[in-house]
Amino acid sequence: MLQIQNLKKQFGGIKAVNGASFEIKKNSITALIGPNGSGKTTVFNLISSILKEDSGKIFFNGEDITHKSIEETSNVGISRLFQQSRLFKNLTVKENLMLAICNEDTKFWKNLIGYKISAEEEKKINEIAKLVGISEFINKQCKDLSFGQKRLAEIARAIIKPHSLLMLDEPVAGVNPKLRKEISDLLLRLKENGDTVLLIEHDMNFTLKISDKVVVMDEGEVIAQGTPSEIKNNKKVLEAYLGD
């Protein structure tokens, strides 16, 4: 589904991503792990076109998306959760979800005449809100939510956006163990329903338990990739992670 080929990105003299290559398969959960500063978030920013690569290619469902704009990349079917909260804070949770569900809302005249989201879309919003556990505070303004509620609302927004690949940057960072378990169950349920997930996460228990494949980065390079059990025993990974 997604192929990353020899991706390079340099900031000044720092090689943030240095020839990273990996691929992820449809209907799987792939984790991108590595120590801080290893280039994981830069890879996410390159895939979602927020950054432009120095060289290398990104293919999504066979289509070269390397030079697409942020919104074009989004509209080929890539949905993304950021590391920091990026909810529209002055809007309610529901309004955030309504913005994610389709792009008819950017058609000015259609909206002026009186466009409204369909009953089917409304139903989908309520279903996902229930699934993620945000129904109770769906009509609250996002700036009034707690950290955990914000995280859930943002995950719901990423899920509700029409996509074939869901990219999650540290979905459980700073989240309590109960919520962590709920998010883990949610991701497994999404996979059961045919979703494809690429995630960055520092919590190894969480990552290794739910992932089908793990890609390990260090100093901008992919140093190992394989199943969780292969990665657990990989010498290079242990060295990079534990400094042994």
Binding site: S48, I70, E71, S74, R86, L87, F88, N90, L91, N96
Partner: peptide, 18 residues
């Protein structure tokens, strides 16, 4: 609402495909 989303966070709005 799209306009307000751009006011609050333009990058996040673009990432939603706007």
């Amino acid at each position: 609402k799209v306009l307000e989303s751009i006011r609050d966070d333009e990058l996040a709005s673009k990432v939603l495909g706007k």
